[in-house]
Design a protein around this nucleic acid. Sequence first.
DNA 1: ATTATCTATAGATCTATAGATAATGC
DNA 2: ATTATCTATAGATCTATAGATAATGC
Lengths: 188, 188
Amino acid sequence: MKVTKEQSTLNKEKILVAASKLYREHGIDGIGIGELSKSVGLTHGGFYRQFPEGKEQLVSEAIARTFDEYCAHWSTKRSAKSIVKGYLSSEHLQNKQDGCPMPTLAADVARAGGAVSETYTDGLRRMLTVISEKKDGDSDHTSEEKAMQMMASMAGALMIARASSDQALAKKFMSSVIKLWNDDTTTA
Amino acid sequence: MKVTKEQSTLNKEKILVAASKLYREHGIDGIGIGELSKSVGLTHGGFYRQFPEGKEQLVSEAIARTFDEYCAHWSTKRSAKSIVKGYLSSEHLQNKQDGCPMPTLAADVARAGGAVSETYTDGLRRMLTVISEKKDGDSDHTSEEKAMQMMASMAGALMIARASSDQALAKKFMSSVIKLWNDDTTTA
DNA sequence: ATTATCTATAGATCTATAGATAATGC
DNA sequence: ATTATCTATAGATCTATAGATAATGC
């Protein structure tokens, strides 16, 4: 039953990766410790050795991982505009589990508060930093204010689009925000 | 035990009003039939006569009510800009239970799908209509595209602000979007 | 007689813990 | 000897249903 320390670390990794995806897909309350453990081939009893503080610890660590991953994805993009275009794509619309943690988890985090909210806030700051390092018009960086406007409008549009049962309406919300930043001429 | 038909209708109203508020505050999975019934002084057994199709019916009807209420609130505002200002206020930030159903419920609805998503989509369309009837610069109405951009950016900013444990960061997200629409000079 | 509500309960969850097990790592 | 995991279980939920109750409304 006992496994090597290396395997044990690997098991914790597997739990975090699975949690990160499953929380984005089904919400923080949508997945229990039992189902999560089973999804990586473990039982739920052993979970509490890996996460002695229980579910809140798991959620915090999984959210930190999710922002790591998502910031790394943005880092590969050349400009803020290309981030917006990729964000508001039908690929991202249909794929919650590997997508941005804002439209999927922000409401859950607002309800959870505590350590979860602090980890999340740290992730938001990291996302802002990534955008602010992108070029914007003449400037070699994007202002914090504009980065915030972009994040809010992208996250809102994708979240609304996912809630809509009307695909045409969903696409209109997404393309309206793409257009907002394509037609934009300010360099704040 | 049996009450008058009038009282019975009133009881259903009370359940819907309570559900509308509690869902915005705690999420759709955050309140059970038992707790909801108790909050209006009923037991959960009688719930299924009022809502024969169960929780999904309740959620759909409660969401329709929420949009009714929220659209009525917007209708009292003079301009699209005044809607934005009221939306991104600390009052709205702190008061989920009477606030807009986009930042609180859109992610839950995306997960729920089905009839809930259809009711929600209808509500989104009604919100668009209310904004589009507001003046915008020279024009006596606001374009659908601009209404969508406003809704997405407002909903995103408020949702992110509520998830943030840093109040200063929360306010910055909100004021960035207020500024986006105050500095705006286009009339699409 | 009809029916709105209540009581009681079934069957599935959920988080968390206790103690057993068995392999690692000293 | 230590410890990562498993088994079993406690105690709280959750949605939903069956049948009892008692007041309405014919």
